[in-house]
């Protein structure tokens, strides 16, 4: 199955919240410069899996993880790894737009400031990131206004720009359009397709059609297990597993 170079591979990943076994022996590759979608009914563990890739689950007390998450050659759960470096390389965009209560500019420059990037370079990177997130034209005249002055869709694109500013290798999107109207959703989907030339994208979505529209690969999860992984076109036309077929045809959801 693995011919192309994979950015991330999990090896027998298991995760417990307390006594609750949330992820069970998950093995999934995320291929370079592709869009991979994680689908499945609510509570199947897809968001939890996503949050394993930048170690956001570390924040939840009583979380236990076994197995590996390999980012290229390095296990990001190895004790030698600095978690802040992982999170710089692996960007994340959340379900609800969550801009900081700061100016548009400062939202994008935040990651750069934290890392101590030279002031002279920051301005250039901010502009590029806003361009790449298709926001520049809309905000170039009001970079120093509050990020809350933007619409929901614009805020979410700001969050994408903010993540892009760190020049990540991968961006994780956790149901990024579930709080948005259809128009803003369409724009974010187009943006994903445009971005996959420069960054690998892993997206959790509740919306099967969305996965069909934008992803190259799809993983179907059910009750903490990875039931099926494959090319999206293939899986959507001839699913191998009965549960996948049932989910895709809307029997449960």
């Amino acid at each position: 199955m693995v011919n192309k170079s994979a950015h991330i591979i999990t090896e027998d990943l298991n995760l417990w919240f307390g006594d609750n076994h949330v992820l069970k022996d998950v093995n999934i590759p995320v291929y370079d410069r592709n869009v991979t979608a994680l689908i499945g009914p609510s509570g199947c563990g897809k968001s939890t899996l996503l949050r394993c890739f930048n170690r956001m689950n570390d924040l939840i007390p009583e979380t236990r993880i076994t197995g590996k998450v390999m980012l290229y050659e390095e296990n990001i759960y190895s004790s030698r790894v600095d978690v802040t470096n992982v999170r710089t390389k692996v960007g994340m965009v959340f379900q609800k737009p969550n801009p900081f209560p700061k100016s548009i500019y400062k939202n994008v420059s935040y990651g750069l400031n934290v890392r101590g990037i030279a002031r002279s370079r920051i301005e250039e990177i901010v502009e590029k990131s806003l361009h790449d997130a298709w926001l520049w034209e809309e905000v170039k005249d009001r970079l120093h206004e509050s990020a809350f002055s933007l619409s929901g869709g614009q805020q979410q694109r700001l969050c994408i720009a903010r993540a892009l500013a760190n020049d990540p290798e991968i961006i994780l999107l956790d149901e990024p359009t579930s709080a948005l109207d259809p128009q803003s959703t369409a724009r974010i989907e187009e943006l994903c397709l445009a971005l996959k030339d420069q960054v690998t994208i892993l997206i959790v979505t509740h919306n099967i059609a969305q996965a069909g529209r934008i992803s190259d690969y799809t993983a179907f999860m059910y009750l903490g297990e990875m039931v099926e992984f494959g090319k999206t076109k293939q899986m959507f036309t001839v699913p191998k597993d009965k549960r996948t077929e049932a989910y895709l045809s809307g029997v449960f959801g």
Binding site: R87, G91, N98, F100
Partner: peptide
């Protein structure tokens, strides 16, 4: 909580998140 998560996800450590995001907010 979403602001703290956003900051951490951008590669800031806990202390930077406290000083740059939580306290100002």
């Amino acid at each position: 909580k979403s602001l703290r998560e956003a900051s951490l996800a951008l590669g800031a450590n806990k202390w930077e998140t406290i000083i740059r995001i939580v306290v100002p907010a």
